[in-house]
C-alpha cells in the first residue's frame, strides 16, 4: 500500500473574480521510502496541491477529491485533528529559507516547541533532541546554534535548519517545496545530498517540488509533470526525463541549459506564457503553445491514461519512438 494516495484533487481559490481553479483533478501516489518529483512551470499549482494536504490553503479555498495518508483521510478530518496528524507525520520545507524561519525566535525555540508538543519531551530532553537534529543536518557548533537567531546563518545553513525542524518529529513524509531554488548552485548540491541521505537513514518518503529538471533527475525515483493544474505526464524518473512523450515535458527539457546527453542541442525557450488560472484554454490547456497541436486538441480534454511505461495526457503522442 502506498504511503500517500491522492485522487481527483481539485483546489479552488477565492479571488476578486470569484473562485478560480488552480489544481484541476490531480492523481498520484507516493510509495514508502521514495523520492517523488513534481515539476512544472511557475503557477502550475504545485505548491497549492501540497498545501491542501496540510490544510494550509488560504482562507475560503475549496478542496475536492480524496487524500489518503497511511490510515488517515486527510481531507475529511476536522481541522484541529489534521493539524495534529500533519504536524507530527507530514512535514514541509518551504521554498525560501530566508522567510520560513521566524526572525525573532531563537533556533532552539523553533526546533523544540513542536517536539515538546508532539513527542511530549521535557525541556532538557527536547534540547538534547534538537542538538542531535542539528548535528544530523551538519550544522557546525550546534550548541551555540541553538541560542542563535536565523539572521546569523547563511541561506544554505538556514535551509538545513528548516530541514532539521521539519524532520525533528520523525515524520513519514517530507514535502520539500523547491528547497534549493533560492540557494546558489554549490549549496544546492549539499542540500540535495542531505535530503537523500536523511531519506535513506530514516525510512522517509520525500515529495520534491522543483522546476529544475536537472535536480529532479539527480534524486527522484518517480516524477509527475504538472501543467496548468493538471498532471500531463508521470512515470519513473528515468523514462519520463530521458524519453519524454508529452510535448510539454519535451519543451521543459529543451529549455534546460545543459541536460545530460543533450549538450549538442540548441537551447529552446518554451513559446508563450503559461495560462493564468481562470483563463485556461479549452481542450488540452497546452495546445496554444504546442507545436503538434491538432484540431481535436482544442475540443477534448485529454485524460491521463497509461501508455506503455508511463501515464500520459496526450492522445496524439507525437514523440513516441515507433
Amino acid at each position: 500500500m502506498s504511503l500517500l494516495e491522492v485522487e481527483g484533487l481539485r483546489v479552488r481559490l477565492p479571488t476578486t473574480r470569484g473562485l478560480v481553479t488552480v489544481v484541476d483533478g490531480v492523481d498520484y501516489a507516493v510509495e514508502h521510502g521514495e523520492v517523488f518529483g513534481v515539476a512544472g512551470e511557475s503557477g502550475s499549482g504545485k505548491t497549492m496541491s501540497m498545501l491542501s494536504l496540510l490544510g494550509l490553503l488560504p482562507d475560503g479555498a475549496v478542496v475536492e477529491g480524496s487524500v489518503r495518508f497511511g490510515e488517515h483521510d486527510l481531507l475529511r478530518m476536522p481541522r484541529r485533528r489534521l493539524r495534529e496528524v500533519a504536524g507530527r507525520e507530514l512535514a514541509m520545507v518551504f521554498q525560501d529559507p530566508l522567510t520560513s524561519l521566524h526572525p525573532m525566535l531563537s533556533i532552539g525555540r523553533q526546533l523544540t516547541e513542536h517536539v515538546r508538543l508532539h513527542l511530549g519531551l521535557g525541556r532538557r530532553d527536547a534540547e538534547r533532541h534538537a542538538l542531535a537534529s542539528l548535528t544530523d543536518v551538519r550544522i557546525p557548533d550546534p550548541a551555540s546554534a541553538l541560542r542563535a537567531f536565523p539572521h546569523q546563518f547563511s541561506g544554505g545553513m538556514r535551509q538545513r535548519i528548516a530541514i532539521a525542524i521539519a524532520l525533528a518529529c520523525r515524520p513519514k513524509l517530507l514535502i520539500a517545496d523547491e528547497p534549493t531554488t533560492a540557494l546558489d548552485v554549490t549549496v544546492q548540491a549539499g542540500i540535495l545530498r542531505l535530503l537523500d541521505r536523511l531519506r535513506r537513514e530514516n525510512d522517509l518518503s520525500v515529495v520534491l517540488i522543483t522546476h529544475d529538471l536537472g535536480v529532479m533527475s539527480a534524486i527522484a525515483d518517480r516524477v509527475s509533470i504538472f501543467y496548468a493544474g493538471k498532471v500531463v505526464e508521470a512515470g519513473s524518473c528515468e523514462a519520463v526525463l530521458s524519453t519524454p512523450r508529452h510535448p510539454y515535458t519535451r519543451a521543459l527539457l529543451d529549455a534546460l541549459p545543459h541536460p545530460e546527453g543533450l549538450q549538442d542541442k540548441p537551447l529552446v525557450a518554451i513559446a508563450g506564457a503559461p495560462p493564468s488560472p481562470g483563463a485556461i484554454p479549452s481542450g488540452c490547456s497546452f495546445h496554444p503553445r504546442c507545436a503538434y497541436a491538432q484540431e481535436s486538441c482544442l475540443h477534448h480534454v485529454p485524460p491521463l491514461v497509461a501508455m506503455g511505461d508511463r501515464l500520459l495526457a496526450c492522445p496524439i503522442d507525437p514523440l513516441v519512438e515507433r
Binding site: 496540510l54 500533519a86 525560501d96 522567510t99 525542524i165
Partner: peptide, 17 residues
C-alpha cells in the same frame, strides 16, 4: 502571509500559539 507562519502551522502548533 509569511512563510514562517505557514511553517508554524505545518509544525502542528495550536492556533493560539
Amino acid at each position: 502571509g509569511n512563510d514562517y507562519v505557514r511553517a508554524a502551522r505545518a509544525k502542528g502548533l495550536p492556533e493560539r500559539t
